[in-house]
Structures are given as structure tokens and as C-alpha cells.
Design a protein around this nucleic acid. Structure first.
Lengths: 364, 364
DNA sequence: CTGAAAGCGCTTACAG
DNA sequence: CTGAAAGCGCTTACAG
């Protein structure tokens, strides 16, 4: 602890290069490169000396040098919507986990209305592949990636054509049909819905699946009780508020994802609308919180972890084999029957004159 | 649409380089480089020709070539815990937003027990800086970053010493003291707590702040009603379950973060424990869902967006000025008084013999 | 304003 | 098994 002690600062140069390691180990620079990777085309003795020198200097292979020549970065881009919504973290987390397990790093990109994706960031050669989780049906991103020979996979949403890319989605049509079938079977005849955007495959397919199944069962979807909007909490919240105000409230409402269904459920709470007695609400996704006792929401259960793992695997396979034909995997969903649905019990609901269901409980 | 039309494929080489652009524009390769960046040390005419050629070829500057010479990647690493918990997405989202606004890309790393961070990924020169949001007090990562001259900032959690790095945290001590003060003022004299790990600054400081404030007010923290555990939903859920089973249930429980408080609230629901009448629960963070009508949870409100923005700004400043002395910013929290707290109303709670508070509502 | 030269830090044939 | 040479795709002095 005395003042004179400034003994072995690791290295004169702050960031050592392979040349520094070579000098210290008494070998040529390419030998350092070989010793640090394969370690086969190098004698055990040399290898040891190099490793010790690298250790002593705290040497780490500089990625930009390596990737310039290997054309590999061990980096994958994930394009998602804002993590503020509950869905994307639930998807990005297992994607990131799978990529990490595969030895890749995750570069996170978002594509939102306010801050649109800058496609060039995907095309500068710094990514070995891209996972698109929030692609609109008209998006040109897959085409650009294909043209630049960047392997990609669509996870969550799909397009009809994905040259040079694969697809892994939930069977959204089937899942929505499950929800429609359940509500019909319970006896609901006044059914409404809050659908997602038609510009997305998830929005489109869940709407089709729900409508088709109801039609098949001879139950009309109440035209006045249908709303469309972005896949957000607010859409569901506003949707229920609207339906109640416009006296178009059905006995059951299907929401095209859980974020909207959570908004719907919370609106019902505020409006003192009893769920499920006065209104059944069904979501789609089965986010973890849907299963919380406090929420206890009936929803179409999707295996996001499975979708993520399969999607990541498709991409990594494609990186190894770029010219493989496109593949498409659909994960079948199931119903998670919880507490936000029941038989229709009361037919008519009087709008207005409702007080909040739960007191705020703030006490001076 | 006829078969013969295969007119202008963009380029013979799939991925054009600056040399290809130079050839097409009839200039030297360095001129392409200049024209594409500053555009000042180049005649308007040349610049135009280069831009057109680049456009025609779909040229994008290759990042590994550039960063090898500039020593800049426009990439920032964010180290977080798993996004599956609700806290980290709420923090990563505004961090990512701030970095994007600053022209940087986000590389996501996680550091968990199961999949620990590989520090070398932060040291390979591929990052201009690092944001550590989940640092343990004994972590050697800040030291390593400092030694390798990688700028970094601690956001959310702090260490005592951060050479070469800055810190931006919530004033956790003060926030927890706010919660203690509120509960005391309401009249609670049997107070318990579910604290986070002592190995983190957030765990340590929130516990100290809560204990100190209660002490100051002469109210003992019920030793039997204190639990410690990771900052997870399950810790809170199990904590309340334990407290009820061990007949050590106080009239109020402070949870060191919202994830734990949400677990506590859900356990109370399952155990048919009335919140706040039988038990007040107070969290820390104010995640968006804490404000949902269905949750309506009293909690210490922190401005995560502010913390993220300030943290990102500190880092970007440090990248421009690496030798600036370390700075530390603390964001003051406030109380979000919602529905999960009240005066202590019933003193004794009989354990056992409780039925779930909300029916599952599943109807054949 | 522009080109020729050098070099960033690696890896990969190519000889020996 | 190892070194000398070349080159990945850029940027940056250096001349002119």
C-alpha cells in the first residue's frame, strides 16, 4: 500500500493486438492467430507460450479485424416493436436465450411508428442474420435482406413470400377459431371482437379464424361490436369503453392479443362491468401475467418459447446453408381456460350510472 | 411479366464494395469514401456521381471495414437480467430509445445465474461503451471495462468505486424511507418486509432506507416478518405465503421491488387475504402495470425513463471525453399512493381455512 | 478537389 | 509446425 508500488501495469499499450502477443511469445503474428483458435496446426509448446502471453497481456481478439476477413460477426439482429408492451419482451427473451446458446450475440432493433427501423443498419454486413418479429405484410425488409443475401427468419408474423428466409408462427387462424368455438359452445350469441391491424398477418389471420368459425357455427359477429386497432393495451381499454358507451355491448368479446385483452379487462374494472358475469373476455398469447391470480384471464395459449427456439434454429441452419429452400413452421395453440369467461348470464347491460368497482383505498 | 424479362439485376457481385462504386462512378476508391461521408472535400459533381453509383449498386458501407480503422462501432452494449421479469424491459426500452436517438445501436447481453455474462464479449472492441444495469456489488466487470478503456455507466445499480465509469440510480435509500414513513403515518405498528439481495446496491439501499426510517420513528420491524430473496415475483409470492403460514403476518409488508410486490399481491388473492384491509402491500418501481385498475398497487414511483436518459447521456458524453472524472446522478423517487395500502384495520389474521378469493369461473 | 499509399487487426492460403 | 505474404473493406494523412 506504499506510494512507491506501481509494479506491473499489464501492458504499455492499453489495448494489445495479436502482434503484441506474438512479440511477447516470440512467435509470428499469424501463429498467435492459429494458436488462439484451432490449436491444432500449432505445436503444444508454442500454443502454451502464446496462451500465456495472451493471458499476461489480457489479450482479446478484436472483432472488427476478424470479421473483416471471416465475413462472420456472430451477431444476429432482432427486429421487434417496443419492449414497453408486454408481448415483445416475452418473445425477445427466449430468442435472445436461444441465440446466446448458439454462440451468437443479439443486436436489438425496434421498428415503430415514431422511430422507424433504419434498414441499412441490417445491411452493413455486421449481422450474420436477422430475426424479424414485427413485420408488416407490405414490408420490403425481407426483400432487401434477400437481395443482400442476409439470412433471415420471420418469427411471430409472416408474409406469403419469403425468398431466402424462413417463417415460424403460431397457427393464428386455428387459435382464433378455438376461441370462437369456445364462446359459441358456452352459449354466447352476442359476440364482439377487438381485432388487430389488417396490415399484419397476426391481425389478419386471427380475425379470419374467429370470423370463419363463428360463421361456420351460424353465429353472426355483431357488426356494431367490432373494433380494430393496434395491438396495444389502449386499444382494448378504449374498445370496451366505446362498446359500453354505445350500448353495443355483447356478452363476449374476443381480443386479438393479450395486451388488448388486458386493456379490456382493466376497462371493465373501471366501468364496474363484472367479468365474466356481464362480459366474457378472451385474449390471445397467454402472457405470463394472464395466469396471475389477480388477472386470471382466459386466452389462447401460445408457446412463445417454442416459437422462438424453432425460429432461432431455422435461422442458424440457414446461415450454415444459405440456399436451402424456405421453410415454414406453425406452432399449434390451445385454450387456457381461466376466469374471464363463462356462459352468458345477464343479457342486457345498462350503460352509465356505474361506479368504480374497486375503491382507491387511499386513506389520509 | 413475360419470361424473357430479366432486365437489370442490380450488380454482378452480390455485395458491392466501395471499389465497385468507384469503378462505376469513374473515381478512385478513397473518393467514394469521402463523398459518402463528409461530402465537403469533394466536388458537388463528383459527389453526385458517387451517390448515384452507390444508389444503383445498392451500396452500404461495410461496418467492419470502417470500424477497423475508426475504432468506433456506433454500438453500445446493455447488460441486463432476463427480460422475462417485468422490470428489465421497462428499463431497457428507454435505454434503447435513447441510444437509437443518439445514433447508436444496442447489443443486448444478459447476466443470469443460468447463463452468466461472458465478459470477453464486452472487451473485443466491438462496443463503443457499455451500460451495466444488473451489476452485483462484487462484480469485476466495471474493473475490466476500466482496464480495457471501455467507457461504461452503471444504470439502476451502483458500486462504490467506478473508475472510468459513471453512475445513474434512483435514490433507493430515500424511496424506501418514503414507504416506511407512509406506513408509519398510517398507524402500522406490525410491519414486515420482503427485501432483495444484499449483494446488490438496490437490495442493500432499499433495506437500509426502510429500516432506518422505521427506527427513526421508533417502530420495530417485525423480525419474524422479514424475508430476503431475489427480486422476483416468486420471492414475493412465497414470502406472503410463508408469513401467513407461520402466523407472522403483520399489518403491512414492504416489498423491495414491484415484481416481488406483484407476487405478494397475487399470493394474497389466492390466500383470500384482503388487500389492503387485512394487509397493506407496498412495492418499489412503479412499473406500468402497477397502475392498472386491476392491480392498483401502491408503490414507490421511480422515473425509469429519466434514469435511462440520464444514464445514456452520461455514457455518450464519456465516449467523447473518456478522461472526465466519474459522475453520479441520483433520481429522486416519490410515493404512488394507490389501492394496496390503508390504515391497519383488523389486527389479527387467522391462518388457514381460506378459500380462493376469485372463482375460476370455468363453466362446462 | 482528388489519387496513390499506407494501415487498422485479423485470417488464410502458400511455401518451406 | 511455422513464417512471409496477401488481403478482407474501409479511412486517413500525404502529395499534387
Amino acid at each position: 500500500m506504499s506510494d512507491r508500488e506501481e509494479p506491473l501495469r499489464p501492458a504499455p499499450r492499453p489495448i494489445p493486438t495479436s502482434r503484441d502477443v506474438a512479440r511477447l511469445a516470440g512467435v509470428s503474428q499469424p501463429t498467435v492467430s492459429r494458436a488462439l483458435r484451432d490449436g491444432q496446426s500449432v505445436s503444444p509448446d508454442t500454443r502454451l507460450r502464446v496462451l500465456q502471453a495472451a493471458q499476461a497481456l489480457g489479450y482479446v481478439i478484436k472483432e472488427s479485424g476478424r470479421s473483416l476477413v471471416t465475413h462472420r460477426s456472430r451477431r444476429i439482429g432482432i427486429v421487434a416493436a417496443r419492449l414497453g408492451s408486454p408481448f415483445y419482451p416475452a418473445l425477445v427473451e427466449p430468442l435472445h436465450r436461444a441465440l446466446t446458446a448458439g454462440g451468437y450475440r443479439t443486436v436489438l432493433f425496434t421498428d415503430e411508428d415514431e422511430v422507424p427501423l433504419e434498414v441499412e443498419n441490417l445491411l452493413d454486413g455486421s449481422l450474420d442474420g436477422v430475426i424479424l418479429s414485427t413485420c408488416e405484410l407490405t414490408s420490403e425488409v425481407p426483400g432487401e435482406l434477400s437481395r443482400r443475401a442476409v439470412p433471415y427468419v420471420l418469427v411471430n408474423r409472416s408474409l406469403d413470400e419469403t425468398p431466402g428466409g424462413d417463417v415460424c408462427v403460431i397457427d393464428n387462424y386455428f387459435g382464433a377459431a378455438l376461441a370462437a368455438g369456445m364462446l359459441a359452445e358456452l352459449g354466447h350469441r352476442q359476440v364482439g371482437a377487438i381485432f388487430g391491424p389488417q396490415s399484419t398477418s397476426t391481425g389478419r389471420d386471427r380475425e379470419r379464424g374467429f370470423r370463419d368459425k363463428l360463421n361456420e357455427l351460424g353465429i353472426p359477429l355483431c357488426a356494431l361490436a367490432v373494433r380494430h386497432g393496434p395491438f396495444h393495451y389502449d386499444t382494448g381499454y378504449q374498445g370496451i369503453t366505446d362498446l359500453l358507451a354505445s350500448e353495443a355491448l355483447p356478452t363476449a368479446v374476443f381480443c386479438s392479443n393479450d395486451a388488448m385483452a388486458l386493456g379490456a379487462l382493466n376497462a371493465a374494472t373501471v366501468l364496474n362491468l363484472a367479468v365474466p358475469d356481464e362480459l366474457s373476455i378472451v385474449g390471445f398469447d397467454d402472457l405470463p401475467m394472464a395466469g396471475w391470480p389477480l388477472i386470471n384471464m382466459t386466452t389462447v395459449a401460445t408457446d412463445l418459447a417454442e416459437m422462438a427456439e424453432v425460429g432461432a434454429r431455422l435461422l442458424l441452419e440457414r446461415i450454415d446453408n444459405p440456399h436451402r429452400p424456405s421453410r415454414r413452421v406453425e406452432i399449434p395453440p390451445s385454450m387456457a381456460r381461466r376466469g374471464s369467461h363463462s356462459k352468458p348470464r345477464s343479457s342486457a347491460v345498462t350503460p352509465g350510472r356505474r361506479e368504480p368497482r374497486r375503491a382507491d383505498g387511499v386513506v389520509g
